[in-house]
């Protein structure tokens, strides 16, 4: 690993570059497709270079929207609300349940721990029908709550926070107890700030998880004004019985990528720290 031989350096660079190319190629195709007009996209071979319609397409998609679809602004907003609600909701619930499991010695603690563990095996896709029925009966179809609560109600992040809390030295709790901090004060004043990098890492992961939700939003939203951008891309391809407007669809896809990218870039430092830092 630490050896400094030119051959192995060259090979590892080659492997890395190949990996980057494989990841970037579809994105490049998306950008290319978003920069041509629809006629060019139906010709073979498909273009590999940029066209001159990029800003034209952008104006069209942002200004008028894709034909037969909800205005892009509304969909971006819906997606944003959904991703944020899922990220914040999951983080809040997971923080509290991890706090309870790590710091409190209550009856059936391990039972609760395993119950939470089991939710890992039951993502929404597995329990989709009963969940739909519950949401429908509660009258939450076509609401943000209906979009997010079933996705929040699983405990994936609990485990990460449990690990984080376990790595916090016991002496911090003891020092805080001597300093007169009650349980909630310790949670707010000490535990959360000390765990902030893990929380940030979890936020990034969950924001993207929320943003990319497809199946569930498709099921619970029928109102056009509740559509999210990710599900709408699929709809656009099937909308109207005519050839898909690839240039607009790709432009929408590009726009849909921007918020997650911004979140990742904005929180990159904390994110990496949160996933790699072991000492609190």
């Amino acid at each position: 690993m630490i050896e400094n031989r030119p051959v192995s350096t060259a090979i590892s660079h080659f492997v890395l570059l190949a990996g980057v190319a494989i990841v970037l190629f579809p994105i490049w195709i998306t950008i290319v497709a978003a920069s041509h007009d629809v006629a060019r996209l139906l010709e073979v071979p498909l273009p590999l270079g940029l066209g001159d319609q990029f800003f034209e397409n952008l104006k069209q998609v942002v200004g008028k929207g894709v034909e037969g679809s909800t205005p892009i602004g509304i969909m971006l907003f819906n997606s944003l609300v959904m991703a944020l609600m899922i990220a914040f909701g999951k983080i809040s619930i997971s923080l509290l349940s991890a706090y309870a499991i790590v710091y409190f010695d209550f009856r059936f603690r391990m039972l609760f721990f395993w119950m939470i563990f089991i939710t890992l095996m039951l993502p929404v896709e597995v329990r989709i029908l009963p969940t739909y029925e519950v949401v429908a009966k509660l009258g939450m179809l076509d609401t943000y709550w209906g979009l997010t609560i079933p996705l929040i109600a699983s405990a994936t992040a609990t485990f990460m926070f449990r690990q984080t809390f376990l790595s916090v030295p016991d002496e911090l709790l003891e020092a805080a107890r001597i300093d007169g901090a009650g349980p909630m004060q310790f949670f707010w004043d000490i535990l959360l700030p000390v765990s902030r990098t893990s929380i940030a890492a979890m936020f990034v992961i969950l924001f993207i998880y929320g943003w990319n939700q497809y199946l569930w939003p498709l099921l619970v939203t029928t109102d056009k004004n509740m559509m999210t951008i990710v599900m709408s891309i699929k709809n656009m391809m099937e909308a109207l019985e005519e050839t898909p407007k690839w240039h607009h669809i790709m432009m929408t896809a590009l726009l849909a990528m921007i918020p997650p990218v911004l979140v990742v870039i904005g929180m990159q430092k904390l994110f990496v720290k949160g996933l790699t830092e072991t000492e609190k």
């Binding site: 020092a175 001597i178 901090a181 700030p193 902030r196």
Partner: peptide, 20 residues
């Protein structure tokens, strides 16, 4: 009594300072 009610202060081996 809780530690905070005992009117004592403690210094720990690893200091246990609040890192943030």
């Amino acid at each position: 009594l809780e530690p905070s009610q005992r009117d004592i202060a403690m210094v720990f081996q690893n200091y246990a300072l609040y890192p943030h």
